[in-house]
Design a protein around this nucleic acid. Structure first.
Lengths: 108, 108
DNA sequence: TAATAAAATTGTAATATTGCAATATCACGT
DNA sequence: ACGTGATATTGCAATATTACAATTTTATTA
């Protein structure tokens, strides 16, 4: 096949998997960390800091954006990214709930 | 290309990505949850409960095992899985540290 | 308006992942 | 030893992902 059979799983499970999948690539971890550590960080900064080509960084940014974890600010010809703190918190909550639920279940 | 350039990232970043990647598929989320909720759960139980073919479940189990999240107990011809609580906790810690670090950084 | 600079998009090649049928392996019971 | 049941492995097809060169888009500045 090749495609994930998302329809056989609950929304809750798919949500957990969607969030973790975004963080499941080192470039995206590095991008999120770099944006959080550097105010007014644009695509070019990420290209230089991480060492992947501009289209590759742009593609990863797009994946991260899909989960709502990024804000954009246009300043002249630059596009500055910041972390959407609310969404990061929501992401953290969903993943943490997974761990709590799992740990509780397997301690019964 | 097609392959992830892991060598350009730090071990810390790769560790985070490795853990989240495993949880980044709904079948593996469902498997982990089902094992944690059911003592003495074997591969066949998972096949029935989740609705993917036996080789597919076996393959996902293998991926989860690689991160050390599973214990195995052989009883007769059955192989019972349980969650390795220490490793689950370690996994949770690594991912939580990522969130803490990111949230602290982007609040400065 | 033309040149410039930043970022997205397109196209493409290479590799990885997902899923399953068929088969192999392994341990038990007869 | 033979059959049975549980799981792993193999092989394969389909799709997804990763990465980048080339190009396009968009806004700015000379």
């Amino acid at each position: 096949m090749g495609f994930t059979k998302k329809h056989i799983f609950t929304d809750q499970i798919n949500t957990i998997a969607n969030y973790t999948k975004v963080i499941g690539h080192p470039a995206r971890v590095a991008i999120i960390q770099h944006i959080s550590e550097n105010k007014d960080c644009n695509c070019n900064d990420l290209v230089k800091a991480i060492g992947l080509a501009q289209p590759t960084i742009s593609q990863h940014l797009s994946e991260i954006r899909k989960t709502g974890l990024l804000n954009q600010k246009v300043k002249g010809k630059n596009l500055y990214y910041t972390i959407n703190k609310n969404q990061l918190n929501e992401c953290r909550r969903v993943i943490n709930d997974f761990f709590v639920k799992t740990q509780v279940s397997c301690s019964k």
